[in-house]
Every structure is written in structure tokens, then in C-alpha cells.
Design a binder for these strands. Structure first.
Lengths: 342, 342
DNA sequence: GCCTCGTTTGCACACGTGTGCATAATACTG
DNA sequence: CAGTATTATGCACACGTGTGCAAACGAGGC
């Protein structure tokens, strides 16, 4: 059986409460006995029961992380950042993937509640408002990352997607492109809208038209969607000379779609991504994209949540807070001067 | 505050033990009162405390998953498989990334013990034997996936890497290649050795020599390593006409390295990967690789562990078990007939 | 040597849930 | 109707840890 503080108490001849205090470093206990107890604990390979502690203290030292999918490298990197910050403060992560499935979201929310997670970070742009409300009502401190329903939550971390998208678009305009299309992902809620907004804004300020058929949405994040739906844009009567893709995953698919259609990137058409996932440096040609500080987003989200946790006992209500991070344009080789019209 | 079974007891005028039984579906409780209690519980939005339950039952309904890194798409897909199976059986996941860092591994092991995880799945090929021993001594049921130290553990899931590597190599030999190099990842322990073994075996059975300089190892899994170290192989006096890469991540980097060196894949040189991660279909050219059933590996690992958990109370000791899964060769366009010697 | 004060430890209860056992309520048998 | 079998419920304790409070201990001052 696993050793408990009672076992240690028996062996050292003190009460279990003394052991508890000694191990927690309570100054009430004399240095001599504290040391004696700690040594005994080490020898007996004692490890406290998280369940018992959590039951008593009402704190689990666990942060819930809800992400739409684990196998999306964008989210993986954010999670990586979260874990760095969490582990630094002695917190553990409870990661769950919603997979855009409401039933699954329901189960996740329930599990978070049952485990009395100390707080929750939502990274799933499509997370259902109903589930969000449930979490809020339960009293969880919540930090949302790039989330569409952010108006309901008080603490959020944003990457400035509007600005990023403007920079990407400006880059293409500067290269002489005038017929630029946008390929979005309808499942990405606010994120795709922000990027679309930035795109439109920059086009407008350059006095360039954006015909309705130049804005197209797919329903998923895999390269497959990008490849399949690139046909739609390429087969338009007036095909674009550049495509601004919602993110790198789609852009990677679009690159292949173009190649299949016999188009040379970037000579015949320019393609841009967004996020700078690791693979975007290895496509052919390497992808021009917007380098989003994914890891920082994760660590900032975790730090904000931890701040919230450690200051709430004071009873003072935190001011709503919105942290906006900026990335940088990363010009590689999938963009070039607009092809001359014949 | 959160509602407890005592609150429900008060409201329904029964004792808290009756509530406990009613909610657990204990047939001791009459149908009428059980229904009444369940309804009250639903109205009061009752959710059991995982901590309390786990403390009392000594079962956490949580599986620990140790993975070397989350942002490696290969592991992500395995984790995805694990989660599918776990959630089906009402288990939750406790995921932690070791990052090849012993200090981190130590913390992870400790956390798993403190949380009294019901079992552990180790997917980190470089996981330290010391930590593994500690987990074993603690009494965790453990399932290892492709792990180097599998001899110490009784239950394991393997992909038949030796066979896969032979098939890949055979494919290249059939295409007329005679000078074939192997690029491994020294951090991947047994996995890279198995693949190297298969490679050598097939070369030998074809009567082809493998000069020592044709076997090269890098120390990491990112495409960057593949790109950087491809130079070494390409600059040999007798450069190979084909490179068998440890996995897709490295192969993706090698593809870029070849392009940089002015080589055309597959006309000048053939490249193969391993794993079939999602991006391998979108490289240029699309990567010939070995399609490993990643998701199945995950679900099988989880199922094996769950079987272990549900049968151990009988006291009967399980026979050691090793499940070997097979994948299939996936020929795409990064391999072609060996270039003619001039 | 008595009182006071500060330090160190133990007692007892609490957290929320599960369960063996005793007891109360009901049904059944003769 | 008494006695017994059956069913339904409650009591009390347990899981491992943390903590307010009382008690024991020792030291110092007069």
C-alpha cells in the first residue's frame, strides 16, 4: 500500500497533524522534528494524495485546457506554452479535445467540473456558448484564447489577427496584385472573421475591389480542404493572382492544388498562410505567412489565469483584461510580383 | 457553493447514504425514491466530486499518458487514438510531455503518483529506465508503446518497424537502387534501431553493401535536422541514390535539403519517410512512406490498459502481452528508378 | 517556587463520497 | 395475528489531508 502521513506519524512517534504541518513547512513545527519527519517521509517514499488534498483544500492544482483538436500543430504549440507556464507554478494540465463535437464538449465540461479544475483555458474557437455559460455559472475562472464569444468572458488573450491579415494583404498589394481572394475556414468563428476583416480593410484602403466570389469558406482545417477548394477559386472566370489563406494548414493544401492545376507558385499565383506552423518552412515553395507567437500566447494565457487564481481570495474583483499580442510578417517564397496581364 | 449529496439528502428528506446509492444505481434503493432523488440531483445540477470519490474508492478514472512531445504530429495522432478509447470507457487522460528532459520526467512521474492515476501509457521512446522502474515499483499497470525498454514492462504495443523498414528498403531496391543510406534519430532509442535493423536486413538479403558512412544519426525530430544533415550524405564521395529516413519529419527536411543542393527528387535521388503524418501527402514531391496505424496503436494501447484494470481485481495475474500491429507501404512520388550511372 | 508567556504538539473535526451492518418498514406465510 | 422473510433506509465509520483550538512543555522573571 501507499504510505500516508499516518504511517509517517507512527514511525516518528508524533501525531499525523504534526506530520502534515512539518511536510508543508509550517513554522509552528520545531526545526528538529520537522527535519526528522521530512527525512522519514523521504525514506518511506511518501507522496501526498492529490485527491485528499484537493478534497480538503478545495484546490486541485490542475488547469483545464479545452482545445478543438490536439493534432493541429497550431494548438499543439499553444498547449506547449501553457504547459511551460503551468508547470513552472506547480500546476498540472487537464487537456481535452472538443473535436467540434457538442456531445464531446458536454462531456468535457462535466469532467472539468467533477475534477474541480482550478480554472479553464478555452482555445477552441468553435466552443459552444452554452457550454461556456455552464462553465461560467459554475464559477470557474476562465481565460479564452482567440475565442469568438469573448464578449461573454472577462479575460482573454488575442493575437491581433486583423492587423496580421492587413500586413499580409498589404504585402501582396505592394507586389502589384489587384485580384486577391480570401479562403477562410467557417469552423473557426471569430478568427476567420478577423482575418477576413483585415483583408477587406486593406483592400479597401488600397481602393481594390473584392468581388463576392473571391471570398470562399471551407469547413475544416486540414490541407485536404485547401487542396479541394482551391479549384473553385482557380476556375473562376477571372481567377485571382493571389490567395490569402486562413491559415498554413489550408495554404499547404492550396499549394498542392495549384501544382495540380499546373500553376507555378509564385510565378503564376501567390499564396499566403497564417500562423507559421513548423511545416510552413518546408513546403515548396516555402510559405509566406504571418508568424504568430503561439508559445507566448499559451504562456500569457496560463499566467493570466494563474494571476486570477492567486488574487481572487482577496475578494477584490479583477478588472476585465484583454491581452493583445502581435506577430510579424514572414516573407518566404510563395509570394512574388503579380504576373503581367497579356 | 457546489451542491453535495448531503444537500440533496436534506432536500429530499433522506440520508446522504441513500442519495449516494440512488445516484450510483444501487438496486437496494426502491425505484420510486431513486427516481425522486435523481430528479432532485438533476435540478440542483449536482456533480460528484472526483476527488472525494477517488479518495474513497481508490480509483481515479484517469489514465496517465507520457509522450515525448505534444507538438510532434506522430504522437498527437496516437494520443488521439488513446483518447477515443479512454473516453468510450469513461476514463480521462492526464497527458504530460517529457521533452527528453530527465528533470521533467521526474516531475511527471511524481505527478502521476500523487494523482493516483489508474494506469500509465508510455509513448516516449527515450523515457528513462529509472523513472520507469519507479512507476513499476509504485504498482502502476503500465502499457508501453514502441518503447525501447520494453523488456522491463509486461504489456506493450508495437508497430512492426522492422518489417516496415524492410518493405521500404525492398521498394527502393526493386527500383534499381544500390547505394542506399539510412538517416536515423539517435533520440528515438529502440524505434530507430528497429528501422535500421530492417534496413540492414533487407540490404543484406539483396547482397548490397552498407558502408559505415551511409548510416548517419541526428539528435532530434524536427525537419531542421533532416535539412541540415542531408548535406553530410549528399557530399560523400560516393553519394547515395536513395535515403531511407527514420521518419517523415526528417524526410521533409531532407527533401528541402536536396532541393537546396540542386537535386531533383525523385529523378536524381529517392527519399522515403516513415509514419505517414498528415503533411507527408503535401510535400513536393509527395512522400513515399510507411503508413503506420497511429490511431489504432493508441486505441489498442488504451484498450489493453483498460483490460488490465478491469481484470486485476480477480487477483489472477495477466500473462505478459505484446501486440504487434502492421502498417502498409505507401508509394507516392519521392521515389523513382535509380538514375543511370554515366 | 509560582506565575506568565511563548513555543511545540495533539485532539478532534472537516472535506464529499462509499459501504457494512443494524434497524425500520413492509409483505408474506401459516 | 404472530412470526418470519424480504425490502428499504439510516447510522457510523472510513478514505488521506488540513487546521482551529486546547493542552503540554519549557524558559524566564519576580
Amino acid at each position: 500500500m501507499t504510505t500516508t502521513i499516518k504511517d509517517i506519524a507512527k514511525r516518528t512517534g508524533v501525531s499525523h497533524s504534526t506530520v502534515s504541518r512539518a511536510l508543508r513547512g509550517d513554522p509552528l513545527i520545531s526545526f528538529a522534528t520537522a527535519k526528522r519527519i521530512q527525512q522519514a517521509a523521504a525514506e518511506m517514499a511518501y507522496l501526498p494524495s492529490a485527491a485528499a488534498r484537493s478534497l480538503k483544500t478545495n484546490r486541485s492544482q490542475v488547469l483545464g485546457v479545452i482545445v478543438s483538436s490536439i493534432d493541429d500543430p497550431f494548438f499543439s504549440e499553444i498547449v506547449f506554452g501553457i504547459e511551460e507556464a503551468a508547470q513552472e507554478s506547480g500546476y498540472r494540465l487537464f487537456i481535452a479535445a472538443s473535436q467540434h463535437d457538442p456531445a464531446r464538449e458536454q462531456k468535457i465540461v462535466q469532467a472539468m467540473m467533477e475534477h474541480r479544475t482550478d480554472g479553464v483555458i478555452i482555445c477552441s474557437s468553435s466552443f459552444s456558448p452554452d457550454q461556456g455559460r455552464q462553465l461560467l455559472e459554475y464559477g470557474f475562472p476562465i481565460v479564452v484564447v482567440n475565442h469568438q464569444g469573448a464578449e461573454n468572458f472577462h479575460y482573454s488573450i488575442f493575437h491581433d489577427d486583423v492587423d496580421g491579415s492587413r500586413q499580409i494583404t498589404r504585402h501582396l498589394i505592394d507586389l502589384g496584385h489587384r485580384k486577391i481572394a480570401y479562403l477562410g475556414n467557417s469552423l473557426s468563428g471569430r478568427t476567420t472573421l478577423d482575418r477576413l476583416t483585415g483583408f477587406k480593410a486593406e483592400m479597401q484602403s488600397a481602393g481594390l475591389p473584392v468581388p463576392a466570389e473571391y471570398i470562399h469558406h471551407v469547413a475544416g482545417n486540414s490541407p485536404q480542404f485547401g487542396m479541394d477548394d482551391s479549384n473553385y477559386l482557380l476556375n473562376l472566370k477571372q481567377p485571382p493572382t493571389a490567395i490569402v489563406c486562413f491559415n498554413d494548414m489550408l495554404a499547404i493544401g492550396v499549394l498542392k492544388g495549384c501544382r495540380r492545376a499546373g500553376l507555378n507558385v509564385p510565378d503564376d499565383i501567390s499564396i499566403t498562410g497564417f500562423d507559421n506552423i513548423i511545416f510552413s518552412a518546408y513546403t515548396h515553395p516555402p510559405l509566406t505567412t504571418f508568424d504568430q507567437p503561439k508559445q507566448s500566447i499559451g504562456t500569457e494565457a496560463a499566467r493570466l489565469l494563474l494571476d486570477l487564481l492567486h488574487s481572487s481570495p482577496d475578494g477584490k474583483v479583477f478588472q476585465p483584461k484583454e491581452i493583445i499580442l502581435k506577430g510579424r510578417l514572414l516573407v518566404r517564397n510563395s509570394t512574388a510580383a503579380s504576373p503581367k496581364e497579356h
